[in-house]
Each structure stands twice: as C-alpha cells, then as structure tokens.
Amino acid sequence: MDASRIKRQLKRLYVYQRYVHGSLVGGLIIALFVLVLVHTAAAVFMAPQLLLSAQAGPGFYIVTGTTGLILVFLVVFLAGAFAGDISGGGAQLFLSQPLSREAYVAAWMIAVLATPTLLYLLSFTLPLLILDPALLGAVGVTGTGLLAVEVVEVGALLSLIAVASKSRAAVVVLGLFLELLLPWVLLVPFIVLVSVPGVGQRLTWAVTAYLVLFPSKYTLFATAPTGPPLTPTQLAAAGLAVAALYAALTLLYARYRLEVK
C-alpha cells in the first residue's frame, strides 16, 4: 500500500469518525455531566481523608467503581449502536463508496472505545487537578486506570461481536453479561478452591488469566496471602495487548468477512 493511499484512507477515517462522533456527542456529554458532578462533589468532600495517610485509599475507589458502571453501560450501548448501524443500513450507505470496511470499523471503534474511556479519565483527573494537584497523587490512578483498561478490552471484544453478529440485542446482552455477571461468577471457583490444601498454589495461572481479562478486580486479590501474580503495570500492558488482539481480529473480520445487506 503506497503512502498516498494510506493518507487517503486516514483522511476518510477522519471524516467518517467526525460523522460518528457527531451523532453520539449528545449522549456522551449527558454521561459526562453526571460523571463530573459525582467526581467533583466526591473530591470536595473526601479531599481531607484522601490526604491523610491513615485514611487514604479505598474511599474514592468506591466512588470511581460506581461511576465506572456508567462507563461500562456507555461502552456497551455504543457497541450496540455500532451493531445497529451495520444491520440498519448505515454501513451499506457508507461502504458503497468511498469508505473502506477497515476505515468504517476503525471509526466506530474509536467512538466506542477511545472516546468514552478518555472522557471518563478526564472527568476523574481534571476535577482533582483543579481542586488541588496533590489530590491526584494521593488518590493514584491504579484503580481507575485498570478499570479503563478492562472497559477497553470488553469494548474491543464487543466490537468484534458487533461486526460478527450485526445484532444490537446480542451485543448489549453479552456486554452486560461480560461486565456485570461473568467476573463475579468466575470468582466462585477461586473462593472454593483456594481453601483446598495443595490447590491454592496451582491457581496462579488461572488467577493471572482472570486478572488479565478483568484487571479492575486486582484489588480483590491484593490482600491474598501470595498477593496478585502481576503488578498493576503488567496487568495494564497485558490487558491492552488483549484489547489490541480483539481490535486486530475485528479489523481482519471486517476486511475479509463483513457482509452488509
């Protein structure tokens, strides 16, 4: 592929992602309103506790864990809108010419994955920085960062499901199952097996796989006797690698197998 063709494709991607964002910006801004209000109010009321060495830590993570649900719903429903666009005729209209399948899917993936996650991180970090920059250092970004990585991973998987199934309902149901139910269901065997003598040590690989798929559950294993098998940075890197794999599969599927009617 020559340079001019890549440039042309990127230009088309830019133009189409503007269109996609234009149609989604209203919903994103409404969600942002709620996120900023909650994060700022929490920061104002919890600032003293955050800076006290003895009390810093979990308080703010309860808030971000709750607002993280808004991010999860946002990504799931945007992925549903993506599937709806493929099945509802939008894809047919834009793919007729001159947009390539990869550019079409990539534009939607930016809207489904990158934008909501970026807005969530901004709604969390900027109020803290505005209030007092020291607060961001006290809160840290481990919990929120891992939540963002998990949402990107699930969003990338949902994009693949959206492209393959073209069903809005399937994407929404699977998305809610993957984020709200499956992580907790998978915890049950760990809770049961960890007390069985000799089995606890052999669970390391299973715990690693679980944490790579659901990095935000890192804190659940932080107090385990052996500790979590990976550091937060390693988990984030592994999670992003899995998300990149899903994204690549989505683009490959779009290029060779995507049919629009």
Partner: peptide, 13 residues
C-alpha cells in the same frame, strides 16, 4: 473526536 474532547473540556471546567 476533537469536537467531543473540546465540548467535554468546556463541560468539565
């Protein structure tokens, strides 16, 4: 995306 980020920064501020 730029429009979304711009609008978001205005809203956050």
């Amino acid at each position: 995306m730029l429009r979304s980020i711009g609008a978001s920064l205005v809203v956050i501020g």
